[in-house]
């Protein structure tokens, strides 16, 4: 009986995967290719995929950050920006751009579009899938390029790399900070919560569901179970048949979600530094709520709408960010077996 149930669950996931892939093909028709420079990519290049909506202020630092750690080509979907993001991206030699005016929400929060590009271009490549406010750090990222990590993962037979979202916030009231275009956001967002993350195993997809951090602590204190999920798999060696199910939280086939060790050891993992709480968060919350394109009716942005003058995420035990080694010591990420 147990066996039959398991078999059914597997079969169900298989169909879900097929459905998602078909959906990616269908929704892919909504994408208009504006500039495709991917033809000149090498066979071992590392790619990055992202969807962008009015992120002109953040894009310059974002692109430079990932260029520096060794991403060779960017695949960007512009979801109807009107702040000059597209013009800026067109000037970049290593960016291919697609454009769409369709609904972000109805494309499974952009994942259908991303799945479509991944399936077309990423096969056999290590690919980073992130938002524009997420910055990947991994063990030894200060001395070793991303390719060192992906080579090691290849040698270890690992195909996906987990990195929890780490919300960064300023050391003072949110609106008092200043951020200028191109600036390193972590000069403003200097602190993080070091250890209030709780995790549960999701039996269906086999991933860990992680919640916590300042967002749960401040905005979801009275209903912490609804706080946003922080588990992510932003780096993956793409294979035919892979598909992202919900944001980068969940992948199919199921085995790719097992970026953790359940027999005591630690697998290698990184973090996504999340630059969400830049000074424009309040305006952004209002704008995004009006756009009505976010998860669970924009529950999260409704909460940020309550961010008022003087509200701060900082508390007496906030930890300043000093680099990946400190995060590793604190047990937020792990070097796994990488020497």
């Amino acid at each position: 009986m147990n066996f039959a149930r398991r078999f059914l669950a597997m079969y169900h996931l298989r169909w879900q995967r097929r459905r998602r892939r078909l959906r990616a093909v269908r929704k892919g028709r909504q994408l208009l290719e504006i500039r495709n420079r991917s033809a000149r990519c090498g066979k071992n290049d590392i790619f990055l995929f992202a969807t962008v909506h009015n992120e002109n202020g953040r894009l310059p630092y974002f692109l430079n950050y990932y260029r520096n750690i060794g991403v060779q080509h960017f695949f960007i979907i512009d979801n109807n920006s009107d702040d000059g993001s597209r013009e800026f991206l067109l000037q970049q030699p290593d960016v291919s751009i697609w454009h769409t005016t369709e609904s972000y929400k109805r494309a499974n929060f952009g994942m259908d579009w991303i799945n479509n590009l991944l399936r077309k271009y990423a096969r056999g490549h290590w690919s980073v899938v992130v938002d524009v406010d997420e910055f990947l750090i991994y063990p030894y990222c200060d001395t070793r390029p991303l390719a060192a990590l992906t080579d090691w993962l290849d040698a270890s037979g690992v195909q996906s790399f987990g990195a929890m979202l780490l919300d960064m916030y300023p050391n003072g009231p949110l609106h008092e900070q200043r951020y200028f275009k191109g600036q390193n956001p972590f000069e403003v967002l200097t602190h993080f919560d070091a250890g209030n993350y709780s995790q549960r195993l999701n039996e269906k997809y086999g991933n860990l569901w992680i919640q916590g951090g300042p967002r749960q602590r401040v905005f979801f204190q009275s209903n912490p179970g609804q706080a946003p999920a922080l588990n992510k798999i932003p780096l993956i060696k793409w294979k035919r048949g892979n598909v992202f199910v919900s944001s980068t939280h969940t992948l199919l086939p199921r085995g790719l979600n097992k970026t953790y060790e359940d027999w005591g050891g630690e697998k290698i993992s990184g973090l996504l530094l999340h630059a969400k709480f830049l000074p424009d968060i309040q305006q952004k919350a209002v704008r995004e709520l009006r756009r009505k394109q976010h998860y669970a009716g924009g529950r999260e942005y409704r909460a940020y709408g309550g961010v008022t003058e003087g509200s701060a995420l900082h508390h007496e035990h906030s930890t300043p960010y000093t680099g990946w080694r400190d995060l590793e010591d604190r047990g937020l990420m792990s070097v796994g077996g990488w020497v």
């Binding site: 987990g162 990195a163 929890m164 993350y197 995790q199 195993l201 860990l208 992680i210 588990n231 970026t259 953790y260 060790e261 359940d262 027999w263 005591g264 050891g265 630690e266 697998k267 290698i268 993992s269 047990g331 937020l332 990420m333 792990s334 070097v335 796994g336 077996g337 990488w338 020497v339």
Partner: peptide, 19 residues
């Protein structure tokens, strides 16, 4: 590195260690 990978840090629950 070996002890991280094989045993992990006792009493730590994190994104890549979930006994």
């Amino acid at each position: 590195a070996t002890s991280r990978r094989k045993v992990g840090r006792k009493g730590l629950q994190m994104q890549s260690r979930a006994p």
